[in-house]
Write a protein that binds this DNA or RNA. Structure first.
Lengths: 124, 124
DNA sequence: CTATCATATGAATACACAAACATATGAATG
DNA sequence: CATTCATATGTTTGTGTATTCATATGATAG
């Protein structure tokens, strides 16, 4: 073997790496959070449950667009809904949503601080 | 106003909702995790730092594809690298990566258990 | 049971982006 | 300094998907 060899390291890594299906499910989950509209919807529901047209009004978007996204969120068990007459109220189905988003938020703010620091150092 | 009105609720929601830019950055961050290849790379780095071709070998993919993804991960400050001669070793730059992924993983396992329970109930 | 409001769904379009291919940079070795 | 190995980058192509428009379902009131 002339080119450099990684079999030793890879043995350990492979052992700890979850199966393909799990990793796909994981990225599929994060894909849900990887859309501005969906994040906005979820964040809005932090405060209180909302009906579809309220969300549409809030985000300045089509009712249809919101409905489509809510369906995706519901299919992934991130939101649930209850019907009251003609209107349907959506709410967060899971506290993990809050945690996951907060975690991302924290990462962002730390990153921003780092950028600030670097800018200050560059000024000196 | 005949159609139903949400101004009251929306006032509160609007007050707590972060600005557009923050929410975009947030979804952009999650978008990074929303790709199987990138999740696999990140998960691999949980164990130990790895050079590009080791990752390529591990995932059975092009070196080019891996490089492109590593660049994206680096731009988002999720991984960093060090050079040792010809080879470049990548490693996790931030412990948030572990937390975020673990959080997603946890959500998934709970969801799986719910599905199992439902299946059991359906059997009865 | 018809009209209207609230939501859902189907189809079409437009855009983003991952992977592959080709090629460039960059470091070490003889 | 030319060659080879390791990685990076530019470009293209195909696929996935968010949004919109049009329309369907579902519920209530008169």
């Amino acid at each position: 073997m002339n080119k450099h060899d990684h079999t030793d390291v890879l043995i350990n890594v492979k052992r700890e790496l979850p199966g393909d299906e799990v990793l796909c499910d994981l990225s599929d989950l994060f894909k849900i959070f990887g859309d501005t509209t969906r994040v906005k919807i979820l964040y809005s529901l932090f405060e209180s449950e909302l009906c579809v047209c309220a969300i549409a009004e809030l985000l300045g978007m089509n009712q249809s667009a919101i409905s489509h996204q809510l369906r995706i969120l519901k299919d992934e068990n991130l939101v649930a809904n209850r019907r009251s007459g003609k209107t349907v109220y959506y709410y967060l189905a899971d506290d993990h949503v809050r945690t996951i988003i907060s975690m991302g938020y924290e990462h962002l703010t730390e990153k921003r601080e780092t950028v600030k620091k670097e800018a200050l150092q560059a000024d000196e």
